[in-house]
Amino acid sequence: MRLASYNVENLFDRARAMNLKSLSQGKPILERFAELNALLAQPSYSAADKTRMAKLVIELDLEKSDVGDFVILRRNRGGLIKRPKSGGVQIVASGRADWVGSLELRDEPVDEQAMRNTARVMRDVEADVLGVVEVESRPVLRDFNADVVAAFGGEAFRHAMVIDGNDTRGIDVGLLTRQGFPIGALRSHVDEMLTERDPIFSRDCAEFEVTAPSGARMLLMLNHFKSKGFGSQQSSNAKRRAQAKRVAEIYDERVAMGIKNIVVMGDFNDTPDSEPLSPLIEGTDLKDIFLHPKFDDGGFPGTYGSCAADNKIDFILLSPALFDKVTSGGVFRKGMWPGARAKRWEAYPEVARKEDAASDHAAIWVDIDL
């Protein structure tokens, strides 16, 4: 069987702030959105909270309207803000119970050529079991699989599953499997908390049980850890470490239950030698497929961007029982932008511009004799 992991960076729609040409443009918008959302969720608003909230509302282009370029403020009932004719914003609610509504990011369609190239990657990697990262929802994954992948000559996957996670941007983790690889028991960890209002997992550590045609069962744990792009380095590192530590604990719990065939995979947003990932990489007996003698990295050690060693952030970690059954593995980069001049790897002819890339991530795969 072939197992693969791929960060698709959304299939049909993506938050407009995440579609900007550079991270430096989108980062402040997403950080203000997250801060305002956290403040709005509080049971009561202090005077300092109201001052800060009003400032954030203006900075998010919501001073004159509930619809900004990147954010929408939905107010269904109750009073939250007033907009005086003289300008500015006043927060009139005393707490979350005073109003009903939400703060949402505005979406826009993914570039059409990029969408087609994503379908090509999902077709050409030829996985029996494909873990996907940054997918909008199960209906989106189902429709993309049935309509777009099939339109490019790919065989549609038989099963598609996504458990809605904690991220408000619509970037969840999900699973596609072929006929003969049914998805069995599911388990979510979205509501495990670091503090009362801070979940451990930015998205989820979703567990899926998959049965191979041979009858052998395999437990897959899909993850998308906290990125380095938003928040301080210290807080981001601490979050990723907490996530890695909890995944390691869950892995150990499953091993203690007698489960031998376990996969932990996804986008961990850090490198194998990083301190935040050490509880998972160094603290368990899981083995990185990049270290298998039959794995071919295609001449580049990384999986993201330029694919340098410091961009090795996508993982398939296998329990010893599965690692011993590996027959081959590799990195599929044809959907990535290879560079404008000295092209680093072979890409699809349709990747004519950086914007045409299916994703900034490569798909990684491994063949297992299961």
Rank of each mutant, 00 (worst) to 15 (best):
A362H: 00
A34G: 02
A248Q: 11
A97T: 11
K82F: 08
E112W: 00
D270V: 02
G165I: 10
L3K: 01
G170D: 05
R344D: 05
L280S: 14
V264G: 00
R32F: 06
L220C: 04
R187F: 13
L318E: 01
V110M: 03
F332H: 14
N269M: 15
G266V: 06
P272Y: 00
P109D: 04
W337M: 08
D128C: 09
K325H: 09
V326Q: 00
M1R: 11
R83A: 10
E192H: 01
A47Y: 08
A97M: 12
I91Y: 10
E104W: 03
G78Y: 09
I313W: 03
D128N: 14
D198G: 02
L222V: 04
E282C: 08
F201H: 08
S22F: 02
W345S: 04
S274K: 14
P182S: 12
L62T: 08
E108T: 12
L141P: 06
W99V: 08
L60Y: 02
S24P: 01
R32A: 13
G174I: 04
P43I: 07
G165A: 02
S328D: 13
S202T: 11
V100Q: 14
G302L: 02
D310I: 01
P338C: 06
V132Y: 00
S65P: 00
R241V: 05
D314R: 01
A358K: 02
G339H: 10
E282T: 11
Q25T: 14
Q42L: 15
V57I: 15
V162W: 05
G79T: 11
Q42S: 11
D310L: 05
L20H: 06
Q90T: 14
L280F: 07
A15R: 00
F268D: 03
R16Y: 10
L56E: 08
F268P: 00
